[in-house]
Design a protein around this nucleic acid. Structure first.
Lengths: 326, 326
DNA sequence: ATGAAAGCGCTAACAT
DNA sequence: ATGTTAGCGCTTTCAT
């Protein structure tokens, strides 16, 4: 790889001049600029980002921690982030935390050791003190911690929509699947749905589940055993909703005629399963983009017009609810 | 952030000694080692990886280029790669190419500029000359180019399995969906399936599709219009297979009684849709792990026992084919 | 408008 | 067994 010295030599100037040209600052005569650019092209010179980073103590790298990229909600987020950064010349180092404290800390250390210039975290209970000490800008994504910039979808609105739409469709025996209490967003949507349902004179059952499809299957079986007369299910997310959908079909129940189901997230799969899953759409790709955008703003020391960006959610009606209501 | 000099000062030794301790090479007295380690702990010292990288011209970073992380086949690969690297102390910079030449080249440049120590590529037609010039180890994943190490699944076996299983189940009018000619793996599975089918006295139709769900939907509609009497469909991948599955159901066809469908990939979704999709399992997670493992071997200059690692595939029977055959 | 030189934090000779 | 020092490739004062 050619270095700045090679270019300087080839162009017959000093390294300082080359640096001025590639960074486009300081005075440099048009003729020398041309000579330098010619040398750069001739040698296929690309500045060594590591040397830059060492000197400036800032790289073009961003650290991203997700719970699990293989979990279908996250790829869309990651893609949004990556697309924005690509266009801004930043790049992503990615880590899967599996919600393990040790992995989160490991990644945090690695990121800091590599001079990342910003952090996007889609994971809970990280060592915020270390982050604050490091002064590195951070944006939380799909998570909320009061004092940090965050991008998330309107969980309360989402939970309400689940409840309202299911009430509009005449359900009287609604089972809500409550996700893990440790995930704040998931609890918010649950609380909001519950609150709406409790205002009506209907039967409400509650059952717990983790967010995975596997646990969703277990939950689904238990659900139909404990609450066989449910005429509606509000699920904590789409993977669990789809597990319930399948179990219902397996038991010979008709969806949506016997039982209606509403999920949450609107992951890619939800539009693909048959019957299509009615759900609450979270604009994951856009949220990822926004998080990246805010982070860049922070990096560039631009003032933050608001700390928390709440994205609207939307009810997407497919075929697990009864369209023919009104 | 504390530097090696801070540690040296705190421990009352030179930076060289600290370097010896943290890199665990050269002679260092037990007592001084202890003093250094105490200082390290006291100051929460972590070596600056950028400075290391600049000196050694090797980082702990690996570049990964995928077509699109949001495409359901790739997260499992990425997860396998990441898990292996995490355990080895390497980290991933990730890029989505969208099969665009410009993006691939951009990422390649970025990776080289950041001293990545290895490359995993799951994308075609990259600038191999530049890679060879850079001397950076590379492993291709789910792609094959003769002269490079590669990890992939046995496409021929997969295509044959599709064909054999569909024949065993008594199908006489088989439509094969052929994926993009540009993707070699996809062509191989197609050719292999076709070859088997042609040995039998059955009706074979061929239709083209891209690999996305959206194009799968288009293809599905066309398929039932052009070849309404198909009693089986062999799809180029699972997303397309699921699109066909849905369209069949939508048209009131019974799966698997009227029409049987076999996909390819065994993505997460395929076990979740209803009816479950019978498909050819590619061990994506394991392939990702293997690619990472081979790359580390290359980085460590270990001899490569074979250039190409072909993973066996497996027929996963769910409910889009007729189990009750034998 | 351009160059010389220091230094970012680290490692690896080389010296002792 | 430990210290001194040059230098990785770059940017940025400070001179001129």
């Amino acid at each position: 790889m050619a270095t700045i010295r090679d270019v300087a030599k080839a162009a017959g100037v000093s390294v300082a001049t080359v640096s001025r040209v590639i960074n486009n600052n300081g005075y440099v005569h048009e003729d020398t600029r041309k000579a330098v650019n010619d040398a750069i092209n001739l040698l296929h010179y690309k500045p060594n980002e590591v040397a830059r980073s060492l000197f400036k103590k800032k790289s073009k790298l961003i650290g991203l921690i997700l719970p699990d990229i293989a979990n279908p909600f996250f790829p869309a987020l990651a893609r949004g982030i990556e697309d924005y950064f690509y266009q801004e010349g930043y790049h992503l180092i990615i880590g899967n935390s599996d919600d393990k404290q040790e992995k989160k800390n490991d990644y945090l250390d690695t990121f800091l050791q590599n001079n990342v210039v910003g952090l996007i975290l889609s994971t809970n209970e990280i060592d915020f003190k270390k982050i604050q000490r490091s002064k590195i800008p951070i944006v939380l994504l799909d998570r909320i911690v009061e004092e940090f910039p965050a991008v998330f979808a309107d969980q309360t609105q989402g939970g309400r929509l689940q409840a309202e739409k299911i009430l509009e469709r005449g359900c009287k025996k609604v089972t809500i699947i409550r996700g893990p209490v440790t995930v704040k967003t998931v609890q918010e949507r649950f609380q909001a749905a519950l609150e709406i349902l409790e205002q009506e004179n209907i039967k409400i059952n509650i059952i717990d589940s983790k967010l995975s499809f596997q646990d969703g299957e277990r939950t689904a079986v238990e659900l139909f055993k404990r609450f066989p007369d449910s005429d509606a299910v509000l699920a904590c997310n789409d993977t669990v909703a789809i597990a319930v959908l399948n179990e219902a079909l397996r038991q010979g129940r008709c969806v949506p005629d016997d039982i209606q189901i509403i999920g949450f997230d609107d992951i890619y799969i939800s539009g693909i399963v048959y019957p299509g899953l009615s759900t609450i759409h979270q604009p994951a790709y856009e949220m990822g983009m926004k998080a990246a955008q805010i982070l860049i703003g922070q990096i560039n020391q631009e003032p933050l017009s608001q700390l928390h960006y709440k994205f609207p959610v939307q009810f997407i009606e497919r075929n697990s609810t009864r369209k023919d209501v009104d």
